[in-house]
Design a protein around this nucleic acid. Structure first.
Length: 203
DNA sequence: TGCCAGGCCCTCTTTAGGGCCTT
């Protein structure tokens, strides 16, 4: 099965269109339900980190200023991902930073992104909410570091994805819980999840 | 000066509004 690249960005804000930039990126490779490789780096995009972000993430201006240039980090990250399909929690957010930061260094960010937030809303509608930390606690997933740091959050999202793949196989009989199935599932309306998984399990 | 995202999803909807989720 093709490895899936799970990505998480820490940034200066929520919108690259409003001038926000990435400060840290982490990518973990998930294969056969196991994390098999990792990439993580702070990055210096030449912007200041405000106090709210420092309080949220622990990332300071000193840390960012000492980090390698954003272009260098993003090129390394793109090489690490290669042509593999990608996943993020609330992928709309990470996808726009992935594309915006890669566009700045002339790289193509046109990867298919699946979203553990959308998948969670379909697979775990009973969850009290669909924040990454809540879902990790709900499923008793391992924690590997401070929340709101890129590598810890990427690993948490990878563990959540592995849990989803496990549930798709054991609860719904989907033997190939691959990226194509995930993309189909997240495009499926909440009311059609059962029929969709039944059809995929029979395929 | 004050404000600024955006895609998804639910419902007291669909000729719309507001909450969730990410930093």
């Amino acid at each position: 099965m093709t490895p899936i690249a799970i990505i998480d960005f820490e940034t200066t804000g929520i919108s690259p269109n409003m001038g926000d930039r990435a400060t840290e990126v982490a990518i973990v490779m998930l294969e056969g339900g196991q994390v098999v490789d990792r990439y993580q780096s702070l990055m210096n995009a030449g912007v200041r980190v405000n106090s709210f972000i420092t309080q949220l993430t622990g990332i300071t201006n000193e840390m960012v200023q000492a980090a390698p240039a954003a272009e260098q980090v993003m090129r390394e990250a793109a090489r690490f991902v290669g042509g593999r399909p990608m996943v993020a929690h609330n992928a709309a957010f990470d996808k726009k930073f992935w594309q915006a930061e890669l566009a700045r260094c002339g790289e193509d960010g046109a990867h298919p992104f699946a979203c553990t937030l959308l998948l969670s809303r379909r697979l775990y509608p009973q969850a009290p909410n669909h924040k990454l930390g809540t879902l990790a606690a709900l499923h008793h997933l391992p924690s590997s570091g401070r929340a709101h740091r890129a590598l810890a959050d990427a690993e948490m999202a990878a563990h959540l994805l592995a849990q989803m793949q496990h549930d798709l196989k054991t609860r719904y009989g989907c033997s190939q819980a691959d990226h194509a199935l995930l993309m189909g599932l997240q495009r499926t309306s909440r009311h059609m999840v059962g029929p969709y998984l039944k059809q995929r399990a029979a395929a």
